[in-house]
Design a protein around this nucleic acid. Structure first.
Lengths: 253, 253
DNA sequence: CAGTGGTCTAGACCACCGC
DNA sequence: CGGTGGTCTAGACCACTGG
């Protein structure tokens, strides 16, 4: 995350700058206004000229500040149109770890089914990761992702509960395939970035059954922590898939 | 790679600009001068003011051009000192995919041993990947990487041969643990970036023996293509390791 | 066409580095 | 101290977007 990140309160004080660059301070101030929801994702912030005038600063300075937030993934600039607050992560970015080759038919669309949903108390690791007090409750989901008729990924999600209450009751069969846009629409939660941790293991009998594999079959586990705009962890996700379908490319530098 | 990348010849023409920004053209021109070896890695290029004057351009413009090359990993700026051509990749970046926990002793230093070295003709895939003509010859190395007394990674390297001739005869027992700095020192080859492709499989009996594992043990394979400053692929590498020691974290956005 | 961001200029002053 | 890159200004003009 950007180095100039401060608490919202600190960033909002209008005293100019301590030992910091002016554009760094401006970036913090603008970030705070975005996090406060002054402009919703997808909406344009005021044009450079207006911002420059209102902060009493030259155009180039405001542009440097905006560049920081663009690099941070918070803003997006469109030539001739304006500067927009970015919407969150969209795509089915879990499947990028696997190649599931469709034999026969054309590549069928991936889809998802919720296998189970329940509330329970967060254990210590979960509470720690989600920044919850001890004894907080969470929503736990099991989810099966398939391509065509072939089940391929088995997922467990842990969501902090005051925040995701709206998902605790609604009809799961009506849910979207992609959860992140739904988080945003239904709960106002924007997923901004995530960290995926990969490891190998073996399927238990129960897990294997879900995916038409055998107990002990090699398995890739992707453990994800997903964060909102304010950099709070708001989703824990564990995804299991056939290790022989695993395929991932990493760029070095 | 940067969008403004052009052939060296095209970038060197001193006719100003077609429909391109001036700083984009400047970046291309400076890139070409770097690739031609006008300044060796680690050396400083002329200061902004000198460049600006010699290209007849404002300071801000030259700074934008330099910013592009910095983002590209070709240059590095040091406040108060100068702008330097970056040295290539350094670290033991293969081990980042694995956690080899040392039981007992403190973490021993990793080291490497060359198991075999031979010349042969490149097969079609290798020639294609390395951009060689059919029938070109390559140097093939087998290498065992260990931590303390524990062998943990088994590597096969394929190097294009006119370029790496200097490695075909020298005493392999005197080689460095880290190959990339040695490529640079001995062959003048700077590794600038690489792409790693991860997949899962099982060890053959011969491979397993090298690593004190059993035939059929789960195995992660990392296939790397490494590129020099001019973006030519100059190394193919296949690394095998115990899948149960695999541990990798990927940032999403 | 008016409004937006993108490029470029020609300066000024500051902060860091090494001698 | 002189030389380097880092910040900032107050403009000008260009290129893209949409009505």
């Amino acid at each position: 995350m950007a180095a100039e990140r401060k608490s919202v309160a600190a960033a909002l004080r209008d005293t100019p700058t301590p030992g910091q660059s002016r554009y760094g301070w401006l970036a913090g101030a603008l970030r705070a206004r975005i996090l406060q929801g002054e402009w919703v994702p997808g909406e344009a912030i005021p044009p450079e000229a207006v911002l420059a005038r209102s902060y009493g600063v030259a155009l180039g300075t405001i542009r440097q500040a905006l560049a920081l937030l663009v690099a941070d993934g918070l803003l997006e600039r469109r030539h001739g149109k304006g500067t927009f607050v970015k919407a969150g992560l969209g795509g089915a970015s879990m499947l990028r770890f696997f190649r599931f080759r469709q034999s026969g038919e054309l590549q069928a669309a991936p889809h998802s089914r919720i296998l189970s949903r329940k509330r329970r108390l967060a254990d210590l690791d979960e509470a720690d990761a989600l920044g919850l007090p001890a004894g907080a409750s969470v929503l736990v989901l099991e989810r099966l992702r398939s391509i065509g008729a072939q089940p391929c990924l088995l997922e467990t999600l842990v969501l902090p509960l005051p925040l995701f209450d709206a998902l605790a009751e609604s009809d799961t069969t009506a849910w979207d395939d992609l959860l992140y846009p739904m988080y945003q629409r239904v709960c106002g939660v924007v997923i901004h970035h995530a960290a995926d941790h990969l490891s190998f293991g073996q399927f238990t009998g129960q897990q294997a059954r879900r995916l038409d594999l055998e107990k002990g079959h090699p398995c890739v586990r992707v453990q994800r922590r997903a964060f909102d705009l304010a950099d709070r962890c708001v989703e824990l996700r564990s995804t299991l898939g056939d290790a022989f379908a695993f395929e991932y490319t990493a760029q070095v530098r």
